[in-house]
Design a protein around this nucleic acid. Structure first.
Lengths: 150, 150
DNA sequence: TATTGTTATACTCTATAACTATA
DNA sequence: TATAGTTATAGAGTATAACAATA
């Protein structure tokens, strides 16, 4: 038999699936990104705030690595967030060279509001789908989540 | 009966679906975006090239509106693309003030290569899914596409 | 001597304002 | 007089290099 028949999981139809999926994800992402509550914050600042909220307190160096930014840039990002009272800088417990940055209550409130507004847009779009389409989406959501994590 | 019962299409479960979907799309988008073939091109330049490829020849002003950029910025973007031989500038047929920008063969080749590399990453991830998961994704892909267009 | 974080400086990208050519 | 495009200039955002403090 031909080589293609020996690997039936990935066919020509899946190459098309790749393209479709990629375009949809990129477009949808662009839409979601443009739906921001507090447009005075940079995308990097927002991402940094979100990372801190997920991981808990981190040092500037660790944050820079996470966000794929150079340390000096992260210094500026943190300064901006601190100026707005969205993060707090505290001393490291054992290493006095390091600093620990954590999200303030105001920062947590901003993140909540930001998520709410984005979800509001998406919820509206979901509301316009048929029950069948919603069902398909619900079933595929965990798969998408796995893809995004891999 | 309660107000909630009168609109059964959107339930609490769908609010969770919104959040999950949003996070997955954003993360997946970030992954796909980081998989670029020609990193010397700006994201705006790449997007402009892609828009030209989809819509056909456009004037700088129309391109600026499409990409949500101011005209002077688009002038620079086009200059960069032209310098690399990825686009060509030609005269408008009836209005001599206007210019028509179109994708060159080299530009089309670059777009093809760019898409191929992104799809290669995604195809690899798809290959790691089970047949059931792939099926769910195939079924939901058109719904995602509709969402992205809306 | 190595590492963490900051400051100093430069480069890229985009914006607003002013200018030129055509309608 | 209005519009399309460009040039001039300025303001964000990020990078590399040099520096201070601590391990």
């Amino acid at each position: 038999m031909s080589y293609a028949n020996e690997m039936p999981t990935l066919t020509a139809a899946d190459a098309a699936l790749s393209s479709t999926l990629r375009m949809s994800v990129m477009r949808l992402g662009r839409r979601l990104r443009s739906q921001r509550s507090d447009s005075t914050l940079t995308l990097t600042q927002l991402a940094t705030l979100s990372t801190l909220d997920r991981h808990g307190p981190l040092s500037p160096g660790e944050l820079a690595a996470q966000e794929r930014v150079q340390p000096p840039s992260m210094t500026r990002v943190i300064a901006g967030l601190e100026e707005r009272g969205l993060v707090v800088r505290g001393p490291h417990l054992t290493d006095r060279r390091q600093v620990l940055v954590s999200v303030s209550p105001a920062g947590k409130a901003l993140l909540r509001e930001d998520r709410r507004q984005r979800d509001a847009w998406l919820s509206q779009r979901l509301h316009e789908l048929s029950p069948e389409e919603l069902g398909l989406l619900r079933a595929a959501a965990p798969v998408l989540e796995r893809l995004a994590r891999s």
